[in-house]
Simulated assay, not measured.
Amino acid sequence: MSIQNDQYEKRQRRWRLLLGKDADQLPAPEGQDKQLDQLLQKLYRSEEGYNGGNGQSMPNAAKWLADVKTLFPASAVTIIQKDAIQRLNIAALLQDEGFMAEVKADVHLVAQLMMLKDHIPDQARENARKLVNQLVQELLKRYQAPMEQSLRGALNRASRNNRPRAGEINWNATVRKNLATWQPEQKIIFPERLIGYGRRQRRCKEVILCVDQSGSMANSVIFSTIFAAVMASMPAIKLKLVVFDTAVVDLTEQLQDPVELLFGVQLGGGTDINKAMQYCESLIQTPSETHLVLISDLYEGGNAQQLLQTAQRMVGSGVNLITLLALANDGAPYFDKRMAADFAALGSPAFACTPDLFPELMAAALERKDMHQFASQRGIPVTPASKPD
């Protein structure tokens, strides 16, 4: 009897998802079924689905596609995405010269193009690349100078020598530091502390950006790529860019062409943060000179305990581990609060960061400043550290 009831409930569930809101005689969906119903309704039944090709609805479409990849099996995702191309009419828009002349690429639009890149017809792909390039150039123009200026300042400060040789003394800085010892009668300053810049550092600072490429992190992937390209161009920084879902991809060699790099990113899918962190650990040559920035919502689909052990091992070896829950302008992020608290307990406070603040954050990281204090001083919420069980 219970088997028959289960089969009956399954049939009801399927009919409810198939018919959508028209199935008013059937029980309303709950839990994950409710999410599935809303996703299907948006594409196949609602007016928004049919008109989704206009510029205003594109940000919603990007999130919708990310949710589709999360909740549906891969075989269904392919069918749904192809339907989305037709119903959202993106392919037609990309071939419309009037649209291309007027449209202004933004992060949400590019995120959507990245989601759909495998289903964009060949004749529309070049226009898609033009839009991605438009955004890349805009972001580089906005962030390249602030990023380079902030990092050069941090590198110079980090290389200061408080025991300089005669030829290495920075006299202007030394005078300012010792003004309190000025003797007006003798018109002499007795320096208690010498400041110099010494020789250039022989070792580059190693920076690893480890970026979650699940659908919800699409905007973070875009901004991370831009900042990675800027840092990779600086001789004093040895930069690695690693993206991950359940697989790990090292994109360092592609940083010279951010447009092609973004087209190569595969947004969506599951998440195995531990696998990515272990790969990053294998890249580390000098822990005391390495700054690893993990950008993730910390929802671990792999082994959570091993992830914490990997992070603890890194911090214990001297790696400066910084955890960003998002690198975007989307407001408060969704994230795993328990995992964030556990990371904070390891000495890596977890918080979100806007792109405008990221150059300042990286400068503070290179100087190994306290990240909890950095965030708190700027009014950024920081997850409290978990207490030992």
Rank of each mutant, 00 (worst) to 15 (best):
D212T: 06
D212S: 12
S214I: 05
S214Q: 13
G215N: 09
G215Y: 04
G215R: 09
S216C: 00
S216E: 03
S216R: 00
S216A: 02
S216I: 00
A218Q: 08
I222L: 14
S224F: 01
T225W: 08
I226S: 11
I226G: 14
F227I: 04
A228K: 07
A229L: 04
A229I: 01
V230H: 14
A232P: 03
P235S: 06
A236Q: 15
A236K: 10
K238A: 11
K238N: 12
L241K: 12
V242L: 15
F244H: 08
F244E: 07
D245I: 00
T246D: 07
V248H: 10
V249T: 14
D250Q: 08
D250G: 02
D250Y: 07
T252W: 02
E253L: 02
E253C: 03
E253K: 11
E253Y: 07
Q254E: 14
D257N: 15
V259R: 05
E260P: 10
L261H: 07
L261G: 06
L262M: 15
L262G: 11
F263G: 13
V265G: 12
Q266N: 13
G269E: 07
G269F: 10
T271P: 07
T271R: 05
I273E: 01
I273F: 02
N274W: 00
K275H: 09
A276T: 14
Q278L: 05
Q278H: 04
C280E: 04
C280Q: 05
L283D: 06
I284Y: 06
I284N: 05
P287V: 06
S288C: 04
E289H: 10
H291L: 09
H291I: 09
L292D: 03
V293C: 08
V293P: 02
I295P: 15
S296Q: 12
S296C: 02
D297M: 05
E300K: 06
G302K: 06
Q305D: 15
Q306R: 14
Q306G: 14
L307R: 02
L307V: 06
Q309M: 03
Q309Y: 06
T310Q: 13
T310I: 07
